[in-house]
Nucleic acid binder design. Sequence first.
DNA 1: CATTTATGTTAACAACATTAACATAGTCAA
DNA 2: TTGACTATGTTAATGTTGTTAACATAAATG
Lengths: 201, 201
Amino acid sequence: MGKYHHGDVRNVLLQQAENILNEEGPSGLSLRRLARLTGVSEAAPYRHFDGKDGILAAVAIDAFERFAERLENVAANVQKHEERIMALGAAYVHFAVDFPQHFRLIFGRERPPLDQYPELREAADNAFDVLQRAVTSVNRRADMTLNEAATAYNRALAAWSRAHGIAMLVIDGMIVPPADQELDDFVLGLLAEDLTAPENS
Amino acid sequence: MGKYHHGDVRNVLLQQAENILNEEGPSGLSLRRLARLTGVSEAAPYRHFDGKDGILAAVAIDAFERFAERLENVAANVQKHEERIMALGAAYVHFAVDFPQHFRLIFGRERPPLDQYPELREAADNAFDVLQRAVTSVNRRADMTLNEAATAYNRALAAWSRAHGIAMLVIDGMIVPPADQELDDFVLGLLAEDLTAPENS
DNA sequence: CATTTATGTTAACAACATTAACATAGTCAA
DNA sequence: TTGACTATGTTAATGTTGTTAACATAAATG
């Protein structure tokens, strides 16, 4: 009775899952509803994914890849070290603003456990490697002292956490970027603030 | 048959809910299990809370209050402006590390909508006011130019987002604070990094 | 062509949030 | 005190969820 091979059911499910996720977040994504919307029986998704976590993992992998791609592009196109750090931070936040649910998924606790999905772990490691490499590359020289290396590492962490904090607070609506300014400029301004500088900047 | 008035059921439920939340996060908190663990019927919680969101709201209010309390203490006890910003950032992260689930609850998307729980909104506003006020108080002088005021505001945002980013990445396990260093010192170091400074700091 | 595998189905299960219908303890006015 | 009202408890029901089992058929493979 049922139609078989309506096309690439797996991809249709995945695409539909991304749509739902974008609008309602991971908790609003119900497997049964997903199946219904896709026009397939309620148990069909289990033939293509390892349950709900499996679908979330697939979406997260996709998100990690797009995320890494963007960062790589930016890192490759900005030569000067300081500028590259800044540009990466801006791109980081920009991605979060463009795909807030995906961003939350890859960082939040609804992300399926990395050790249960090797491809997910790989995608995650790759994205963070891109980030870390791009930030520390210039600093990592053979003749660095231990202290200098530690400093370079701290810089990477500082840059990363700043971008992450801005991203989170913006997509949570706690920080509202000014309407009369480009998002990137706003982010660059925040990243460049030096809290130890005198007050009259 | 059933015992009535086992004591303060509302508070027992709330306490139990906090326990469960600490161990398993908001998704692991099931109303029915909560009721069972509390030794009360499965519908009883609905007499004391507005469903699951109601319980989460109550927990979140509690968390906001503890959070604000800590920040207020720190702000009141540190006089120098730069030092206060830093100390607040450290306290911010420290709270997140001490109560990761509560921190996630008050910032994440599982937090019940503020406009449905006025007390929750009040608690949230209060916490952020404490933060904002403590960071900008010294800068906000009557004779400030518009530009100076904007700068002060940006500083507050920068401080906030940095602390938030560190907090998030640490409790998500993406950043692992060195074991041989006090958490506060580690955080202070990251907060003080100036990304625009020359590389050999 | 026969068999195996991939992919679909329906039906069932247990857990969940929520609500309705009902019962009793505590409170308070008459 | 008594009688009504309210607060707080109960059980039972509804509808949704994730997941699995039992079954059916298309596609691939020998």
